[in-house]
Computed example of a mutant assay.
Amino acid sequence: MSNYPSYCFIINCASNAFRAESFFRNKEAELKAKFSNASFIYIRKDDSITEIARQKSEGCSHIIACGGDGTVNRVANGLVGSDCILGVIPLGSGNDFAQSIGLDLNFDRNVEVLSREIITRVDVVSTDCGYFLNTFGIGVDGLTNYYASKSGLKSGFLRYFVGGLKALFRSEPVRTKISISEHGTDIEQKVWMVAVANGKSEGGKYQISPSSVNSDGKVELIIVKSVNRIRLIYEFLKLSFGFSFNKRIVDEYSFTDSVSISTEGVLKSHADGEQVPENDDYKFKVLPGALKVITA
């Protein structure tokens, strides 16, 4: 890698309702003037964002993920283990990780954040199917994400809201066993969902884990108990308006090393809003400060 900074912008063309490509092509000259050795890669449907990011990290000092949480997740999966710096220009409907590092949808402000280059080491969580930066949801959370990803609704909020209602009516609590490395006793109970949270929110505004900070070396485990369905729907409606779970219906734990979760039957799950293969056995490990990220 050169000693001089070089920036590779990886743009998911499907982002911003498929307007991302034309937007960035109009911004190329401006960005090249601001960032030395800037290059641009436009991601098509069958391209592997992770592999492209991994390849570019060998010759570029900065990789800028331009898209939603899924794009950021796949770029990060290509950068973990390298010395490359991750930057973000959010273009998705949720942008939860971008929010957690102080970004919004103001393009000019986000470019200014990149140019100031305040770097924070962010924690990463490894799983059997890769890494994630923000949240991993199992059960109702994973099914909500599945329905939202299949929805034709344009609004990100509506996709998640309608998907959540579908999931709440079609799910059942499932018996779960959770082993936290720092705890001596396994947790065994029926639950609606488990969220492994390195960040506070999902779906743009759903405050799943308000106490989570993605640079503190620990990750939260949010377990939604087997309360009755009506109570759960009420709590979901509260979440939809920016409130967090009532503490009486959730158990929360923190861990700094590893967690394993097994469920009675395979369940839908997601990592940073991206569906992952259905499973009944999950393992998570905290990698403190594993990724250098430009933050506001």
Rank of each mutant, 00 (worst) to 15 (best):
V88W: 04
E21K: 09
R121D: 04
G163W: 01
L133N: 02
G184C: 01
N134F: 01
I187L: 15
F241A: 06
K166A: 08
I178Y: 07
M1G: 14
A195H: 12
K285G: 11
R54N: 09
L103H: 00
T185I: 15
G137Y: 01
G289L: 13
F18G: 02
A14T: 10
L31F: 06
E278F: 15
F284C: 06
V174T: 13
G163P: 07
E30W: 06
V219T: 12
S151T: 05
G130R: 07
P5K: 03
I222D: 04
K247H: 11
A296P: 05
V111G: 11
G265Q: 13
C8V: 08
L114A: 14
L105A: 00
I43M: 08
E28K: 15
S149W: 10
S260E: 10
S258I: 03
L237T: 07
Q55T: 10
K200E: 09
E51D: 14
I11Y: 13
S211L: 13
P90R: 00
E188L: 11
N73F: 01
V227F: 13
N37D: 04
S39M: 05
G92F: 01
V111A: 12
K190D: 04
A167T: 02
E274K: 08
V174H: 11
S209D: 11
G102H: 08
K247N: 12
L232S: 04
T127V: 05
Y160S: 00
G59E: 15
S181V: 11
E235S: 11
